Structure formats: C-alpha cells, structure tokens
Computed example of a mutant assay.
Amino acid sequence: MLDVARIGAISLDLDDTLWPIWPTIERAEKVLHAWLVENAPMAAALFSSPSALRDIRAHMAAQRPDLKHDLSALRRESIRLALYRAGENPLLAEPAFEAFFAERQRVELFGDVLPALEFLASRYPLVSLSNGNADLERVGLARYFQAAISAREFGVGKPDPRIFHAAAGAVDAVPAQVLHLGDDVLLDVLGALNAGMQTGWVNRTEALWPHEDQRPHLVLRDLGELCEVLR
C-alpha cells in the first residue's frame, strides 16, 4: 500500500506515461521521409518505409552498443548510414535528424496529464526520468519539473538503480521519499522498487500485473486517480 506520508518528491516517466509514443514516432518518421524525398531522394527511395529505417537502426544498435542509451545519437547515425548506403552526402544526417527530432517533440498529451501536473507540481518537486529523448522545454512541460534525468545524459538507463538514485538526488530527496510513476513494468515499476522507491504503475491499458513476488504500491488508470489519492 502507498504510504502518502513518505512522499517528498515524485519522479515521472515520459513516453507512454504522459503521452502515447508510437503515434508520435510514426508521425516523425513520415516527416523524416518527406525531408529525404526532397533533399536526398536516393536514400528516400532505398529506405522508403519506416520498417526499413528501423532495420538499419537495429543494425546500427548492434554495431554501436555504446549508443544504446542515446536514442538521438542512434537515430542520427542510422540516418547517416542510410545516406552512405544510398550514395548520398552523409553530412545531411544532421539536418535530416533535426527534421525528425522537431516532430518527435510534438506530442499529444493524455487528457489527464496537464491537470495532474498542475496539481502535483503545486505540492511536490517533480523530476522526469526517461530512457527516451523527449525535451521537456520543446514539449512545453518544463515549467512543471524541477529537474530532468535522461539515460542519454546520465549514461545508464532504467531499470538500473543508479539512474533512479540520480533522480532522487536531483530534487534533494532520498529514494525512500520518492514516488515513481511509469507505465513500463520492468523499466519503471520493478526498477524503482529495486532502487528503494515507492511506485505507481500507470496502467492505461488495464493490463494484468505479471509478477507475483513484487507489486507496485499503487495501480492507476490515469494520473487523475493519483491526485484523488493525494488530496
């Protein structure tokens, strides 16, 4: 059970917790393809489907394990490889990635998110904790958060306890004082539990909890339910 009295800060996952990620990525990949059609047509023809670009990303991930926590660098270098294979100028990777990245920041928030962030930020210091590459400033949510911790900048990702401890430290808390909220069973819930935090599983799809030996302190259909618990 959640111990409300222990909560001194809240950490939040971003992708699929505050917004659905795959519609965002699919839209950004369409923007990337349109940019390639105009500026690097041979690469656009060679990699004309999102699945083809994902295949080359998988190849790049296997070749560059040092980039596994930096999704931006992985995407940029994948584009560079696609350009090279198509006989296009690899230097176009930078502007091509920026076209993708700008669209990737145009997220559509779940309907409960803004009211919940207003409520939570007025009562607790909030820190974002993400393995992804969303930019809170560009997304438009930075005003609600006192800190942002990403796997790309920190060097390791969830579920490693060290990144959870870094999130706690970023808001001057110890892990036991932090409630972590996220959608992913392994990365968010089990990761936070193993780091000594209380956890809220944001289960928007009404999935069944898969682990009998460890459970979240709270299961939420949306962030509005947490606000009701904390009022």
Rank of each mutant, 00 (worst) to 15 (best):
R123P: 10
A167E: 03
P115K: 04
Q105N: 14
A142M: 06
A93G: 00
S150L: 06
P95Q: 00
R138Q: 15
F97L: 03
F97N: 03
F119S: 09
S122G: 12
N131Y: 12
S78D: 03
V107P: 06
G157L: 12
P90S: 08
N131I: 01
V127Y: 01
G155F: 08
F164D: 03
S122I: 03
L91M: 14
S122R: 08
N89W: 00
N89C: 01
V127S: 04
V156A: 05
P125M: 05
E88H: 02
R162M: 14
A147N: 00
F164G: 02
A102N: 04
E153P: 01
R138Y: 06
P159Q: 10
A134F: 13
E98A: 03
A167S: 11
R106S: 13
A116V: 08
V156I: 12
A168Q: 02
V156W: 07
S78M: 05
L109I: 04
P115R: 15
S130M: 11
R104T: 03
N89R: 14
E108A: 08
D112Q: 12
F119P: 07
R162H: 11
E137I: 11
G87W: 00
A134K: 07
S128C: 05
L91S: 06
R162S: 15
F154G: 11
A166N: 04
R152Y: 03
A142F: 00
A147V: 04
R162V: 12
F97P: 00
L109Y: 05
E137Y: 13
A167D: 06
A121Q: 09
G169K: 10
Y144F: 15
R80L: 05
A134D: 14
S78Q: 03
G155P: 06
A82W: 00
K158C: 12
A93R: 07
Q105W: 06
L83M: 15
P115F: 02
A102K: 04
P125N: 09
S78K: 02
V171I: 10
A166I: 11
L114A: 12
D160C: 13
G87Y: 06
R123N: 06
E88M: 11
L109C: 12
H165I: 10
H165Q: 14
L126N: 09
G111V: 11
R106N: 13
E103H: 03
L81I: 08
N131A: 06
L120R: 01
A166F: 04
E153Y: 02
L120F: 14
E103L: 00
R143K: 09
I149F: 04
A168V: 09
V107C: 05
L136V: 08
Y124P: 09
A99M: 11
R152T: 03
H165P: 05
R104N: 14
S122Y: 03
R106E: 14
I163S: 13
E137L: 11
P161S: 07
N133S: 13
S128R: 02
A142Q: 13
V113P: 01
A134W: 02
N133A: 09
V113N: 02
G132N: 06
E137C: 07
E153C: 04
V171L: 12
L83P: 08
P125Y: 13
R143S: 15
L141D: 01
E94I: 05
E153D: 15
L129G: 03
A151T: 07
V171R: 11
S122K: 14
A166P: 05
A147Y: 01
E103K: 10
A82F: 00
K158V: 02
G140E: 05
R162P: 06
P90R: 10
E137W: 13
E94N: 08
